[in-house]
Design a protein around this nucleic acid. Structure first.
Ligand code: MN
Ligand code: MN
Ligand code: MN
Ligand code: MN
Lengths: 217, 217
DNA sequence: AATATTTTTTAGACCAATCTAAATTTTATA
DNA sequence: TATAAAATTTAGATTGGTCTAAAAAATATT
């Protein structure tokens, strides 16, 4: 049985190992969790004792099979709850993270599975991230960053890289969301800013914005 | 901001002070929480420092106004979640307690209030207990124990005193639930057992059962 | 009222999770 | 490759929540 803290660490390690190859460094987890590196080292040892990570001094960690499973169970709950909050409780996609961060720790298989049924087996959460099913399997789109979408090639927004409230609310104001069709009309060589067609409106976005939007071509 | 542990203590003190008058004793909380009396004393001191209880050595505790409010906020969440689990997630009334015990600690006013709206402002939980509204006000029925219902006077089951799975499943088998009309046909002087009409069926119940069923006459 | 029993508190310890400060190892740079 | 910088670990302390064992107070019984 995991504690709230070990669960948060496992999830952080899982996410970190998705976006980088090789082992996960102490400081990267320290930053994600908001703890000091020395605390992270302590936790690495504990997780290693539980055989949830492989850890060698000064070499970072990687999740074991059991560690991945435990992490995915938490990710599953997190994304199901986020979906529920948006679809039934009038939460906006920028408001759900903090609450799901708590709800993901509720221990009840029946609750998780019934919630999934109630939501009609959603495959993606409000941010476009895939939801692991009961067998912890998930299928993600073959997605690219908006910066990589060729000119005049029709694509659809299927996710965001930056999940911060600031960014999500900015997208709301620009009327860009999951499912919005996107077309790149012009790419400015000077600063890599883009003129795009998003849904029915034409607008300009910066490179920084573009590299935080996932597109299914 | 309360911890999970202080919240559980406040709720336990609240419930204990409902069913007995005067202050709440150390051992009664120790039994409810499943902790040793010495741990309870420690917690009484902490809660007293936070001005959530009034505590005098060897004299037990009583909740302050602020303590009552904090307890009611948790009770509110507990009962709303229980209602949700039964009405939308196919939980039986004997399965909800353990999960609600966790969910009651989720901190998000928006979540609580939206859940209440989603459930259409329920006034009572699956066990017939009143749900405090946003202002923490609740109205309970004018209820009596089934042992006190006069012969041949029509009543309705509106709650249970014992919330254990064993008792609730026993009532399920007897087809007694919240809302079931009850009529006492005969009271056996020898052992205080009752012949009752519950819904459409006639059955016999022991005194022990009868004194755990609340009736609105 | 004296004594026995029960209840409650205190003292001292432990565990998980964190921290700071110092030591050690790895990595980068001159 | 020697040295400087950065990353990581160790040592030791702190906090919240718990425990056991012993002491103290309240309550019940003779
Ligand atoms: Mn979390
Ligand atoms: Mn998400
Ligand atoms: Mn609880
Ligand atoms: Mn209940």
């Amino acid at each position: 049985m995991q504690t709230l803290s070990t669960e948060n660490y496992l999830k952080a390690i899982y996410h970190a190992s998705q976006s980088a190859s090789g082992t996960v460094a102490t400081t990267s987890i320290a930053n994600k969790i908001g703890a000091k590196p020395s605390s992270v080292t302590d936790m690495f040892k504990k997780l290693s004792d539980q055989k949830l990570v492989k850890y060698e001094k000064y070499q970072g960690v990687s999740l074991t099979n059991e560690g991945v499973k435990t992490a995915l169970r938490i990710v599953r709950k997190h994304r199901l709850w986020e979906s529920f909050l948006v679809s039934h409780l009038n939460f906006n996609w920028d408001e759900v993270h903090q609450v799901a961060e708590q709800l993901e720790h509720i221990q009840s298989e029946k609750l998780t599975n019934e919630l999934e049924r109630f939501l009609d087996y959603p495959t993606h959460d409000p941010h476009g991230d895939p939801i692991p099913n009961r067998a912890l399997f998930m299928k993600s789109y073959n997605k690219i960053l908006l910066t990589e979408l060729p000119l005049n090639k029709e694509g659809v927004c299927v996710g965001v890289k930056d999940n911060s409230s600031d960014f999500l609310r900015y997208l709301d104001r620009r009327q860009i969301g999951i499912g919005t069709p996107i077309l790149v009309l012009h790419r400015e060589d000077f600063d890599q800013s883009l003129h795009i067609q998003a849904g029915n409106s034409t607008l300009m976005i910066t490179q920084k914005t573009a590299e935080n939007i996932y597109i299914k071509p």
